[in-house]
Amino acid sequence: MTPTYYLLLSALLFTIGAVGVLIRRNAIVVFMCVELMLNAVNLTLVTFARINGGLDGQVMAFFVMVVAAAEVVVGLAIIMSIFRTRRSASVDDSNLLKY
């Protein structure tokens, strides 16, 4: 099986994540879609490491995982605080700031 299929799969996952961010309403789901995008990138990195025959891509995937974990901590804290205030995690309800 050629590694190119993995690149296509990761591009597909990235697109699903990006579309999810744009169309989903719940802040948690939007955030999970961002995580899906980051993991699609990990798949790309690992595949390119395989194609190019180096280890850099695999090491980079670890860095991305650490960053994603840190982002979860900050992101869930922010989403929790707004959920406690509004009793809703819908991004459509956060509409005080506009124009």
Binding site: V41, F48, V64, L97
Partner: peptide, 25 residues
């Protein structure tokens, strides 16, 4: 403001990262 900045910022850094991955390839 924090929620909007966070969600859009994370979205943008995912794009940045995919760019890095493609350039690595």
């Amino acid at each position: 403001a924090a929620v909007k900045y966070f969600l859009l910022g994370a979205f943008a850094s995912a794009f940045f990262l995919y760019g890095v991955a493609l350039l690595y390839g």
